[in-house]
Simulated scan of single mutants.
Amino acid sequence: MESLGDLLKSWPSGQNIARQAEQKLAELRDDPLVAKLRTKYPQVDEGLLRRNLNRVYQYVTEYNNCSNCPGLDVCPNDYEGHYTMIHAEELNGAMQLYDRKVSCKKFLARQAEEAVRSRIRSFYVDEKALRRVYSSDDILTRDLERAKAVGQLLRYIDRTREHGLQQEGLYLAGRFGTGKTFLMCYLLQELAKVGYSGVIVYMPDFVEDLKSLMHEPGKLKETVELMKETDLLVFDDIGAENLNPWVRDHVLGAILNYRMERKPTFYTSNYDLDALERHFSFTNKDGEDIHKAERIMDRIKPYVENVMVTGENKRGRKA
Rank of each mutant, 00 (worst) to 15 (best):
M214I: 05
R175P: 07
E229A: 03
P217R: 07
G198L: 12
K228P: 00
K193P: 02
E190H: 13
Y271K: 14
L232N: 05
E216N: 11
M184P: 11
Y258K: 05
K180S: 10
R175C: 07
L191D: 02
Y267Q: 07
M260D: 01
K263Q: 10
L210R: 06
K211Q: 15
V199M: 12
D205Y: 07
L183K: 06
D209N: 11
G174F: 10
F206M: 04
V234H: 03
G218V: 12
D237G: 09
N244L: 08
E261C: 03
T230V: 13
H250D: 15
I200A: 02
D249L: 01
H250A: 08
L226H: 06
C185T: 14
T178G: 00
V251Y: 01
T230L: 01
F182M: 15
A173H: 14
D205E: 14
Y258N: 12
A240S: 13
A254C: 06
Y202F: 13
V194Q: 11
V247T: 01
V234F: 05
N242L: 14
L252Q: 06
D236C: 04
Y202S: 10
A192I: 15
M203K: 01
G239I: 00
V251R: 00
M260E: 08
I255A: 08
T230E: 00
V207G: 10
K221R: 15
N244R: 09
K219L: 15
T181C: 09
G239S: 06
L187D: 07
L220P: 04
D237H: 08
F206D: 01
Y271T: 05
L188D: 04
T230A: 13
Y186H: 15
M203I: 12
G195M: 14
V251S: 00
C185M: 10
L256R: 07
L226M: 14
Q167E: 10
T268V: 10
